[in-house]
Amino acid sequence: MNLKFVSAHAWLTGGAALRSNWLYMITGMGFPLSLLFVVGVLSKGAFLPYALAGGLISIVATNGIFTMADLGMFKFEYMFKDLIVSTRTSPMDYMFGVMLADFFWSIPSIVLYFILDMIFHILTPYAFVMTLIVASLVLLSTASLGFVLTSLVKHQRFVWAITGMLSLVMMIFPPTFYPYTYLPHPILLILTISPTTPAAVLEQGFFGLAPTLWYMLYILIAETVILFLLARYATVWRER
């Protein structure tokens, strides 16, 4: 693995670029915070803890969707992918570089959510550690999905269409902002097609808001492994 590239990409297009493009950081916060506000108002505060727990997953999933949008921009707008195919960089280096760069952009939102979790007294050390594990799995699975899809599309306009659909499937339908117990079990199982569903269910358990369904962890791990292997082996790098 070309760690020099992974770290350089993560820092130069993420951490360093963040300073001169801080408006995008606020954009990244916008969607999860808006939903948090709407859910909080409509439920008269009843669902706020659920939205705070699931909001973290939502931010990480947004990060994954941004990764796909960025990969599209790099491929079609900057021709950056064409530029680095002819270097020592592998597809996995590239994916990790873009994924970690976008993660830099999410850090302020994640910190804000953890602060809100503390303010509302739902964050425990256990929930914090488990959240990091679950969030890492969501980050890897959504970025892998974005990577495979971007390698297959032929134009940036398809990237926008797909990211729009992914936002629906990953953030609106799954129980990231409401109790998973409201869903009939078969529907919950259908919704596990998105990694954010098992992640949100687990989060509600870790935060003590609902029973922990441990089999959701196995589903999340399986999805992450499958999507990562797809990204590893199904990505079109040297075209035919």
Partner: peptide, 22 residues
């Protein structure tokens, strides 16, 4: 039609490419 990544300084664009080359 390759373009430098527009929100990065020219210097960083070259550095990033060199990192890709190892």
């Amino acid at each position: 039609e390759a373009k430098p990544i527009d929100y990065m300084p020219a210097m960083d664009c070259v550095k990033l490419y060199l990192a890709a080359r190892g």
